[in-house]
Design a protein around this nucleic acid. Structure first.
Length: 463
RNA sequence: GGCCCGUUCGUCUAUCGGUUAGGACACCAGGUUUUCAACCUGGGAAGAGGGGUUCGACUCCCCUACGGGCUGCCA
């Protein structure tokens, strides 16, 4: 079996498109099939190489690898024209000499007669070729005018469209360029696509496309039209909603694994499964599990899922992901020292963050160099009394074995001697060590940065 | 306007004629606790409305309302 993702390069990769790609990828990968990529760049006005690059980059970041090279639809225009002419030869299409002005005039006349939205009926459909003028012509499909076309959709069920609702669509423009409706069908057929999984905005188009398959005597693929994604307010997703491009999510530091998990779960379910890997999803994913209603984006749940994935990622992979995030977000790269420290501290950071920026913020204690400048909220804990306690602590730390157990006994004892609960001592320690109020445990921070750095920071803060 | 699709807690969803309508996120209360995150316990929260079919409908059919899509020599 073969699936494909066929975006048009007129902008960034949309989050809804990303989910469509994801579904195609999961379905193919879970069944040992192929997942192909085709760039629908036949609209020369709006297609740009930058958009193509952004789409490829977005898919790559999400980990949706495709088989073979991405196909350019524009590059196949001669093949599309060839098929249009084959249709002509088979008698399933005809030359239409009507000009845009004539078509508009026809519609006006029909409207005047009371038709609300007139379908153009070309007078050339059954014209004798002998009457053909020597003028540019478009090739129109000779679509059936009676009966109905049935789309047997794996998601939407049996969808019936009456043939008299459809016009004879143009397959080849008068300038010889193919129209999308023809190009998709030809490409999908030539690429051996067996399952067309795409947004349900194409559901109506499927009827017309199926007519092309029929006209050419080609086998019709399995259709699966999935609902679009909406913004949190239930409206069609737009820039008003904030992040709509997958690149935004990457730059905001969401892990790709979490994105995949969340997006898979959006509009699809496998019982009560909520947190899973893509490998698991591949084993479960099927078309019948896809919902029929549009789903809304819920950033809280996305973050929750992402947090679980960060916590579950092995340190080495997590470190790589974080560095990739830094580059994508245009943030300074890690120095070798920072990298080594972060690697050492990941164990106490990864289960406290939902995104990479949050993790990095909590990693400030190991990323920052002395002197640590506390944030206002943290500085508040460094009152004179606390500073005195920190000062008294350093000699003991100097001779400590630097094991977690010993640090724990030293600090709890110090707190007890000062007549304080441990929380009262932890606050200034946290301020001195990290300059932040949200950090890993003070013991973990001390263990990660080591004795000398710990003592130096306490002395800085006590001074 | 015509045609097509959709509608279960605030959100994502389970249910495929018989359930106290389940789970997750979010929320509220309590617990744990060194901050954050996490975790534990408990709680509130749903079948758009109206007709049918049926012994019995969230589930099947029809109508209405609402939302979305298509209706191009765009993709």
């Amino acid at each position: 079996m073969v699936t494909r993702f066929a975006p048009s390069p007129t902008g960034y990769l949309h989050i809804g498109g990303a989910r469509t790609a994801l579904f195609n990828w999961l379905y193919a990968r879970g069944r040992g099939g192929k997942f192909l990529l085709r760039i629908e760049d036949t609209d020369r006005e709006r297609s740009t190489p930058e958009a193509t690059a952004a789409i490829l980059q977005g898919l790559t970041w999400l980990g949706l690898d495709w088989d073979g090279e991405a196909v350019s639809q524009f590059a196949r225009k001669d093949r599309h024209a060839e098929v249009a002419h084959q249709m002509l030869a088979r008698g399933t299409a005809y030359k239409c000499f009507a000009t845009a002005a004539e078509i508009e005039a026809y519609r006006e006349a029909e409207r005047a007669r009371g038709a609300s939205y007139p379908i153009f009926r070309s007078p050339w459909r059954d014209a004798d070729p002998a009457t053909h003028p020597d003028a540019p012509y478009a090739i129109r499909m000779k679509a059936p005018r009676t009966g109905e076309t049935v789309i047997d959709d794996a998601v939407q069920g049996r969808v019936v469209v009456r043939n008299d609702q459809l016009d004879d669509m143009i397959v080849l423009r008068s300038d010889g360029t193919p129209v999308y409706m023809l190009a998709v069908v030809v490409d999908d057929h030539d690429m051996g696509v067996t399952h067309v999984i795409r947004g349900d905005d194409h559901l109506n188009n499927a009827a017309r496309q199926q007519m092309v398959y029929d006209a050419m005597g080609w086998p019709v693929p399995v259709w699966a039209h999935i609902p679009l994604i909406h913004g949190p307010d239930g409206k069609k997703l737009s820039k008003r909603h904030g992040a709509t491009a997958v690149g935004d999510y990457q730059a905001q530091g969401y892990p790709a694994a979490g994105m995949r998990n969340y997006l898979t779960r959006l509009g699809w379910a496998h019982g009560d499964a909520e947190f899973f890997t893509s490998e698991e999803a591949m084993g479960w994913f099927d078309l019948t599990g896809i919902g029929r209603a549009p789903a809304r984006l819920d950033f809280r749940k996305l973050e929750h899922i992402c947090g679980l994935h960060i916590a579950a990622t092995p340190d080495a992979a997590l470190l790589q992901d974080i560095e990739a995030y830094l580059a994508a977000a245009n943030r300074p790269a890690l120095t070798p020292d920072q990298r080594a420290l972060l690697d050492r501290g990941l164990y106490c950071l990864k289960d406290r963050a939902k995104t990479y920026p949050e993790l990095l913020e909590k990693a400030h204690f190991l990323l920052a160099a002395r002197p640590i400048v506390p944030e206002p909220a943290a500085a508040a804990a460094l009152d004179p009394v606390s500073r005195g306690i920190l000062k008294n602590l350093t000699p003991q730390l100097q001779s400590a074995s630097w094991s977690r157990d010993e640090l724990e006994s030293i600090l709890t004892q110090a707190a007890a001697e000062a007549g304080l609960g441990f929380g009262k001592l932890a606050a200034p320690l946290r301020a001195a060590l990290a300059g932040r109020t949200a950090t890993p445990s003070v013991y973990d921070m001390m263990l990660v940065i080591g004795r000398n750095e710990t003592i130096a920071r306490l002395e800085d803060a006590a001074a």
